[in-house]
Amino acid sequence: MTTWLDDVFPVTKPIIGMCHLPALPGDPAYDKAGGMDAIIAHARHEITALQEGGVDGILISNEFSLPYLTETEPITAISMARVIGEIRSELAVPFGVNVLWDAVRSIDLAVATGAAFVREIFTGVYASDFGLWNTNVGKTARHRQAVSGGDVRLLFNIVPEAAAYVAERDLAQLTRSTVFNCVPDGLCVSGLTAGAPTDTSTLKIVKEHAGSTPVFVNTGVRPDSLAESMKFADAGIVGTFFKKDGAFENDVDLARVKDLMSVARSVR
């Protein structure tokens, strides 16, 4: 079955590498001495390593804006737009954006920078590490149209990190109702936090009830788990494994990117 993935990516089962931006202006850990120049240099290093390693796409996020906001300050998306504007000509693969955790600002950033897709929490109410987390998917969908973002693909986190769905519905019901009511372009299935393994049985349930909607394995992808995950997932998003020593806080390691992409090509 042909999906929008076939139009965006030239391969089946694409692997999207994460470009984790350092803390941005306004974030608690922002490096004022290094400033925006240091953030841009870091992003350039990350996308160079990811592309040389052979990833099929890149997702740019403000991963180190901890602790996250569910309604971000304007400076966050503005800073990310500056970074992407500086490196845009060097991006040779399809890319997406993720302003953690603000769906509206993520769409704005995608429209402004030409990103092909957005990953976010678009639907549901959660008890999370960031407090009670609410969404308004109908309003967000209309905002996408209002800012001429109809071509931006929306990847819904169906099992959000660091959060639990408030309603007492099982995953199969949640998947079916999300697909029917919200018409996502993709469903992302995650572990507890960045880098945490995604349970294969969870992937299987989502895939069985997602219909024609592509399913992404969103965390914990490793060479030894990739083949099993890709039995059910249509694509993978990789961040932590690509880092030096597999540590979330480290820079991307070209050798680790090449290792995983070699496995990815063998299982397609």
Rank of each mutant, 00 (worst) to 15 (best):
172 A>E: 06
19 C>P: 05
157 N>A: 13
204 K>L: 10
241 F>K: 10
120 E>I: 12
109 L>C: 14
22 P>I: 07
261 M>S: 09
19 C>K: 03
127 A>T: 14
256 R>Y: 07
126 Y>D: 01
141 A>D: 12
107 I>N: 04
189 V>C: 04
210 A>V: 08
217 V>Y: 11
164 A>I: 14
81 A>I: 03
187 L>T: 07
133 W>T: 13
175 T>L: 10
52 E>Q: 12
190 S>K: 04
253 D>L: 00
112 A>T: 09
175 T>W: 06
168 E>F: 11
168 E>V: 08
59 L>Q: 05
199 D>S: 15
176 R>K: 09
169 R>W: 03
54 G>A: 13
236 G>H: 01
11 V>R: 06
201 S>E: 15
5 L>I: 15
75 I>Y: 07
16 I>M: 02
228 E>P: 01
245 D>E: 06
229 S>G: 08
241 F>P: 03
55 V>P: 09
23 A>E: 02
218 N>L: 11
215 V>M: 02
256 R>V: 11
131 G>Q: 01
21 L>D: 11
15 I>C: 05
186 G>D: 12
13 K>T: 14
171 L>M: 11
119 R>W: 03
26 G>N: 11
266 S>F: 06
201 S>G: 12
152 V>Y: 11
44 R>K: 15
40 I>R: 06
253 D>E: 10
251 D>Y: 09
27 D>K: 07
57 G>F: 08
141 A>I: 14
41 A>N: 08
68 Y>H: 04
112 A>N: 04
56 D>C: 10
5 L>N: 00
8 V>K: 05
76 T>C: 13
196 A>N: 13
34 G>K: 08
95 F>D: 13
152 V>G: 09
3 T>Q: 01
170 D>A: 04
151 D>I: 10
174 L>S: 11
14 P>Y: 05
98 N>P: 07
140 T>E: 06
268 R>S: 15
24 L>D: 02
42 H>F: 05
137 V>F: 14
239 G>D: 09
1 M>I: 02
215 V>R: 02
224 D>I: 02
58 I>Q: 09
34 G>Q: 04
62 N>F: 00
17 G>Q: 01
107 I>L: 06
60 I>G: 00
263 V>L: 12
69 L>R: 13
197 P>E: 02
185 D>S: 13
16 I>G: 04
106 S>K: 04
89 S>Q: 06
78 I>F: 05
266 S>A: 15
18 M>N: 04
189 V>T: 02
241 F>Q: 05
28 P>T: 02
10 P>R: 13
266 S>R: 05
260 L>D: 10
73 E>T: 15
108 D>G: 14
123 T>C: 12
195 G>S: 03
150 G>R: 08
65 S>F: 08
55 V>K: 05
87 I>F: 12
197 P>S: 01
177 S>M: 15
233 A>S: 05
99 V>D: 02
248 F>M: 14
36 M>C: 14
135 T>C: 09
113 T>I: 05
38 A>P: 00
225 S>K: 12
81 A>G: 14
58 I>N: 09
145 Q>S: 14
98 N>F: 09
156 F>D: 01
258 K>V: 08
114 G>R: 07
151 D>Y: 01
29 A>S: 15
174 L>A: 11
200 T>V: 15
41 A>L: 04
158 I>H: 02
92 A>Y: 09
244 K>Y: 04
217 V>D: 07
261 M>E: 00
95 F>T: 13
154 L>W: 01
195 G>I: 06
105 R>M: 01
